[in-house]
């Protein structure tokens, strides 16, 4: 398409999408004057120095990374059979089931988290049922387990959707051929389905990872203040301490991490494609 037709779209994206990022990056290089919330003149790296000098923030970064990786892996384990079922077995129910899968995505983060709070609380459904059955109760709120459950609940659809797309395009003949040649079900999954579904898995993993890495509401509510993550610390700095430049530096670091991940994924998949072409 000729460039003039694209210009309005480019201009709009630059204004509403890129400009805020540039603004954010610029703010992260400023500091507040002593005893004031106003930004003083001049630029410096002091926000980033503080970020890397204090082990607290590095711990938070590491913890957030761990939760994001955990959420991605658990989501993948759950989403693989679910997506496969939706494509091969659900039949006419597929539409309804897919719509149900999307509910966590369209209902925002706050309501499901408050719901989870009452599910997982000491008087909640889970522990209430345990008590009825005479089983020991479990502490879920304020623990890593509780947060992982919440994060998987929120972001599972981001894994299921790309997988459904990928599975829908896999011809069933391939698996049938493998099975008729004597491959057991597990081998069919490992050597036929998974390698072919890799693009969907990678797409889903990137989406879930990024969403978990930047999530705020779920760890804030389900963590009960015991577990600081990138999102909760950035909120604390921006919304409560009102140290906007430092909060910007935190946000820029998160953006950089996500950018690096994207770069790694795209390089990785290019290498993989090159390998496929070889005999």
């Amino acid at each position: 398409m000729p460039l003039p037709f694209l210009l309005p779209a480019f201009t709009l994206s630059a204004l509403v999408f890129l400009a805020p990022f540039v603004w954010l990056a610029g703010t992260s290089l400023r500091v507040q004057a002593e005893g004031s919330l106003l930004l003083s003149d001049g630029v410096s790296l002091s926000n980033y120095r503080r970020l890397f000098a204090d082990p607290f923030f590095l711990e938070v970064l590491l913890r957030t990374l761990l939760y994001s990786v955990g959420t991605t892996l658990i989501s993948l384990l759950i989403a693989l059979p679910v997506a496969r079922f939706l494509v091969t077995r659900a039949g006419r129910m597929k539409g309804i089931l897919l719509a149900l899968m999307l509910v966590p995505l369209v209902s925002g983060a706050l309501l499901p988290s408050l719901g989870m709070l009452h599910l997982m609380g000491p008087l909640g459904v889970v522990n209430g049922a345990a008590r009825l059955l005479g089983l020991p109760t479990v502490k879920l709120l304020g623990t890593p387990t509780g947060i992982l459950i919440g994060l998987v609940q929120s972001f599972l659809p981001l894994m299921v959707l790309p997988l459904v797309n990928t599975f829908a395009r896999l011809p069933l003949d391939l698996e049938q051929a493998a099975a008729s040649l004597g491959a057991p079900a597990l081998a069919v999954w490992r050597r036929v389905i998974l390698p072919l579904a890799m693009p969907g898995i990678v797409a889903g993993a990137v989406l879930v990872f990024c969403a978990a890495f930047t999530s705020f509401v779920t760890p804030q509510i389900l963590g009960q203040g015991h577990i600081a993550t990138f999102g909760t610390v950035a909120y604390q700095q921006a919304g409560q301490v009102l140290d906007w430049p430092f909060a910007s530096a935190l946000a820029v670091l998160a953006l950089v991490m996500i950018g690096l991940l994207q770069a790694a994924v795209s390089i990785g998949s290019r290498l993989a494609r090159r390998r496929e072409v070889r005999p």
Partner: peptide
């Protein structure tokens, strides 16, 4: 600390539970 609360709903649920 037993918990950090951000809303009354949260803290009262935990208080009613005896936590």
């Amino acid at each position: 600390i037993a918990m950090t609360y951000t809303s009354l709903d949260e803290i009262f649920a935990m208080m009613d539970a005896g936590e």
